[in-house]
Design a protein around this nucleic acid. Structure first.
Length: 190
DNA sequence: CTATTGATTGAT
DNA sequence: TCAATCAATAGG
């Protein structure tokens, strides 16, 4: 068993946290069983960033982004999908890290059931896919990730090789290289 | 109140 | 390449 991250770990700026979360493990202990996966792809969003939900200030949807770091920002989009973010930085500065892909670790059978999909590479290779596979819902909005049934554990291996590039699916700040992934990992999206 | 858009996905 | 599908947000 790996150690759970401290809240302090999340207080760094989003682009930095996005890198540091790679290789860490997202764990969800549900009534059905435990599901977990290695974080292999992330994106950073900060308040000065035109592509960020926090760019135009605090609203009912994004308010948790302006609170203390280490909490979950879950939002509904495209009328059918949820995405999962980790709040980062200091309070009153809206920033977060979007989790885009995981490498399935535990509870793969549960993931297959919730995703109605058998191929392991198709289980968590997209932001809305991992939310489905991990059994995350809007109920998890604002929950702490440094303790509790939904949490993030420390890296299994230190100093992984990381690649970076432009973010996916946005129409503003399209050239900002704030998407990060574990180099050559086969479980990333696109 | 109305209109637009979207940090996506799966099928064609 | 495109439809699905609707809440949040911006604008009047």
């Amino acid at each position: 068993m790996s150690e759970v991250l401290s809240q302090e770990f999340f207080t760094k700026p989003a682009p930095e946290l996005a890198r540091d979360l790679l290789g860490c493990v997202l764990v969800h202990k549900t009534s059905e069983g435990t599901v977990s996966g290695i974080i292999v792809e992330t994106e950073a969003y900060s308040q000065e960033d035109a592509a960020s939900h926090s760019y135009r200030g605090e609203t009912p949807r994004n308010s948790v982004m302006f609170g203390p770091a280490g909490h979950a920002y879950v939002y509904f989009t495209y009328g059918m999908h949820y995405c999962f973010n980790v709040v980062s930085g200091q309070p009153d500065h809206g920033q977060a890290v979007l989790l885009r892909a995981l490498q399935p670790l535990d509870g793969i059978e549960l993931m297959r059931q919730s995703r109605k999909q058998n191929q392991d590479k198709q289980l968590c290779n997209g932001p809305a896919k991992l939310v489905q596979a991990m059994g995350i819902s809007k109920q998890d909005y604002g929950k702490p990730l440094f303790e509790g049934v939904l949490h993030i554990s420390k890296r299994l291996k230190e100093d992984p090789q990381i690649s970076e590039g432009p973010r996916i699916g946005i129409s503003k700040a399209v050239d900002v290289p704030w998407r990060f992934w574990l180099t050559d990992n086969p479980f990333i999206s696109r």
